[in-house]
């Protein structure tokens, strides 16, 4: 009895000593940066969202950006790159560089990043490193390695759909590594469904018509996104309309268009009617015919 208790006590002591030594070693080498919790959160640039997120996105952590349809990939990529550009701009500890890891299944849709477009968007193409492994397992390994690298500003891991291999354990591993190194890890889910993961925040991105251009009335105006925060570990969800400002590299608040879309967005959280929890009984049942008037007419 007493021997086994002594053994467990020794184990605990050994584990603690090892932990202290690891910390001391890191501190001595100067490689361990300040804890991720202490680094300032990443603001998006718009006061409303930043207030909602209590300062901004947690920088040393995992966040997920999802585009429900394959054609929304442009908007989702824009949002992910915007976050990455802001992470690079923050320049904590002189780090820089973005690593973009692609799951080979995403190449089926055939699109790759265009460096001139990146430059116009506000991101220097020379700061991007593209990693294209041959299979999902290699891609997950590469994402883990990049998430643990101190010298990176952001990691974007592009996957297609909801592969069963990329499960809660895998996202948790990514999250822990990102927390330790302070890298902003983003999962860009292309044409994927909602899935439980260890991400701190989950965003769904939809396209939104651009605002009117002041110079060219019929032209395509400033780029706009409709963001839905589907899951937030540290607060509430919400929905916003944002525009990306390439010069300042920030997301600006955008007003909804004067000519609204024909159908309101299907998943609007802010505009839920009061009777949302009750079955809807007062919907339109279809065209109402007045039989008294049509009865007797030749069909």
């Amino acid at each position: 009895m007493s021997l086994s208790r002594l053994q467990t006590a020794t184990d605990i002591l050994q584990a603690r000593t090892r932990a202290y030594e690891a910390q001391a070693y890191q501190a001595h080498r100067g490689m361990g940066l300040a804890d991720a919790e202490k680094s300032p959160p990443l603001t998006l640039g718009d006061g409303a969202i930043d207030g909602h997120l209590e300062g901004g996105l947690v920088c040393g952590g995992l966040h997920e950006v999802r585009s429900p349809l394959a054609r929304d990939i442009g908007a989702a990529t824009g949002f992910a790159l915007g976050l990455a550009a802001r992470a690079m701009q923050a320049e904590r500890g002189g780090r820089g560089g973005i690593v973009w890891v692609t799951d080979p299944a995403t190449r089926v849709d055939g699109g790759g990043l265009f460096p001139v477009g990146l430059a116009q968007y506000g991101l220097a193409p020379s700061s991007m490193t593209m990693v294209e492994p041959g299979d999902l397992q290699g891609a997950m390994w590469a994402a883990d390695e990049a998430a643990g690298c101190n010298g990176l500003a952001a990691l974007i891991f592009q996957i297609k759909g909801n592969p069963p291999r990329f499960d809660m354990t895998a996202t948790r591993r990514l999250m822990l590594r990102a927390r330790q190194s302070g890298v902003l890890a983003l999962t860009l889910r292309q044409s994927g469904e909602e899935e439980a993961s260890a991400a701190a925040t989950r965003w769904r991105v939809n396209t939104e018509s651009s605002g009117a251009d002041e110079n060219y009335q019929h032209g395509v105006g400033a780029m706009r996104l409709s963001l839905t925060l589907e899951r937030n570990r540290a607060g509430r969800t919400g929905q916003w309309l944002l525009a990306w400002n390439p010069k300042d590299r920030s997301f600006d608040h955008a007003a909804p268009n004067p000519h609204t879309r024909a159908n309101p967005p299907a998943h609007s959280l802010d505009r839920l009617p009061v009777s949302a929890n009750r079955p809807d009984s007062s919907g339109q049942m279809g065209q109402v015919l007045d039989h008294r008037r049509d009865f007797g007419r030749a069909s």
Binding site: G112, F114, V116, G117, A119, Q120, Y121, P125, S126, S127
Partner: peptide, 29 residues
């Protein structure tokens, strides 16, 4: 490499964050 590529960009007169005329995603074909 980053330094060299930035030079290449500068000569292409494409300042970072300008008017957007090029897409983010380009299809291979």
């Amino acid at each position: 490499a980053a330094g060299n590529a930035a030079l290449a960009l500068a000569s292409d007169q494409e300042p970072l964050g300008g008017i957007i005329t090029r897409p983010l995603i380009l299809f291979d074909r």
